[in-house]
Design a protein around this nucleic acid. Structure first.
Lengths: 138, 138
DNA sequence: TCCATTTGTTATTGTTACTGTAACAATTTA
DNA sequence: TAAATTGTTACAGTAACAATAACAAATGGA
């Protein structure tokens, strides 16, 4: 699952949970509603649980529910929850002979540039909450 | 080759060519200098040639040289040259049952968001030329 | 206590994508 | 014609990925 797919799938699941703030939904129910595999979804939601975004209840009559208000869950932390790498991580080719430090310096240049781009993206995502998305897609 | 690796590899090759603006270098020479496979490099440079960024001379004593001043080659067009998809393209999961248009609307939301991010990145890259990078890594 | 249910995680399987290299046709100069 | 070089295709090996299945662990109720 690509990073961007994970993010959008997680948002769909959270929006689904937002409809029933007081009761749980099982992974099967959510998966069915948003059209993804239940097993895959469980691993996504379990990551979000570790971030404190959702609450999980195991066992009979268990399932998932939101652990916070929709306005207090932003895209940046969802992304960090479901993806171990940083947002939109980019890599440079580092298989360069050590003595060629021109190429090495270009690697450093791109590392810096990509970090800067990542920061821009993260700032953008911090300002978008689940509530924002629910409002816009209502 | 990932998109970001292509970009940095292309920049390394162009910087290499910038050292000898008046004579050609073969793919083997450049590949050796920057530590990549010559065949892979040729396909990268051939894409840049189609963009008018480098000039190729085929046959005996042939090779590659820059077709423009370093200050007139920016990262955005290098990226477009070596990658068929748009810069840092992001995809959303679209395997959703058609009747569920909540999920569909979230897909649209993310498509818009990702397009916006792409535009930000492209603007950033347009302002960086090979000359900029040579200056910073000299 | 035992059973049904549900999460959390691992394994499996098939498929796709990628990587590095080689090969070779087409082109060009001498 | 011979040598050199690009441009493109092919290929084998590997890695990554997707979709699913399987099952241990946890939980609540009969």
């Amino acid at each position: 699952m690509s990073a961007s797919t994970k993010l959008s799938t997680a948002v769909k699941a959270l929006s689904c949970l937002a409809k029933t703030p007081d009761s749980v939904q099982t992974s099967a129910e959510i998966a069915d509603a948003i059209g993804v595999n239940a097993s895959k979804l469980r691993s996504l939601l379990s990551a979000l649980a570790k971030q404190g975004i959702v609450k999980t209840i195991k066992g009979k009559d268990g399932g998932f529910k939101l652990n916070r208000k929709c306005s207090e869950i932003d895209l940046q932390e969802i992304y960090c929850g479901v993806e171990d790498r940083r947002a939109f991580h980019l890599d440079v080719h580092t298989g360069i002979p050590a003595e060629n430090n021109g190429a090495q310096k270009i690697n450093f240049f791109f590392n810096d540039l990509f970090l800067e781009i990542q920061a821009d993206i993260e700032n953008k995502m911090k300002n978008i909450t689940i509530q924002t998305i629910i409002n816009k897609t209502a």
